[in-house]
């Protein structure tokens, strides 16, 4: 089952968040979201409270999935970068490590060229972190690690979710 789970431990999350904070600073962006391809937010940096991050994550994943479908229809493997230009705010979307999406929201304080440049650099760092997460996860699967806090979930725990 391990391939159907993405587990991010605290120190890994902190490394991802730090990489996003640096990217935000370097690119002068408003906010940056790292989103799993299924539409779940992994980490974020910047003025994230100005945005509905859950909806952003879901719609971005839908957008990427639809564009991915379009790419395959014309024989491309993927369109690795998407750009949406608004009157004030713009969105730059790129794929990272084949499993995540980097969403950068920026305005006139930055530029598309700067964002593209900084995203390319940050992507390398993020890819390295994801590689390490995958390796750690694969090693734990081999060891049958008992660390998961969920293997003791009881039926009562589950029922209580619906009774609150």
């Amino acid at each position: 089952m391990s391939s159907t789970f993405l587990e991010v431990y605290e120190e890994e999350f902190e490394r991802l968040a730090e990489a996003l904070r640096r990217l935000r600073y370097a690119s002068n962006a408003e906010a940056i979201f790292l989103i799993d391809k299924n539409g779940q937010q992994i980490a974020a940096a910047g003025d994230v409270e100005n945005f509905d991050s859950t909806s952003l994550a879901s719609l971005t994943a839908g957008n990427v999935a639809a564009t991915d479908g379009l790419a395959k229809l014309i024989g491309e493997r993927e369109f690795s970068v998407l750009f949406h230009e608004g009157e004030r705010d713009h969105i730059h979307i790129s794929l990272v490590a084949e499993r995540a999406i980097l969403l950068v929201i920026f305005n006139e304080r930055s530029s598309l060229g700067l964002v593209r440049l900084r995203v390319r650099r940050a992507s390398e760092e993020l890819e390295q972190i994801f590689r390490e997460i995958s390796e750690r996860s694969a090693a734990e699967a081999d060891e049958q690690s008992p660390a998961s806090p969920f293997w003791e979930i009881t039926d009562e725990d589950i029922d209580s979710l619906f009774n609150e």
Binding site: F5, L6, D36, Q40, F150
Partner: peptide, 12 residues
């Protein structure tokens, strides 16, 4: 794919 974030203590 279930996403478990140990830092934010969330299961998605």
């Amino acid at each position: 794919m279930t996403f478990i974030n140990y830092a934010a203590k969330e299961i998605n």
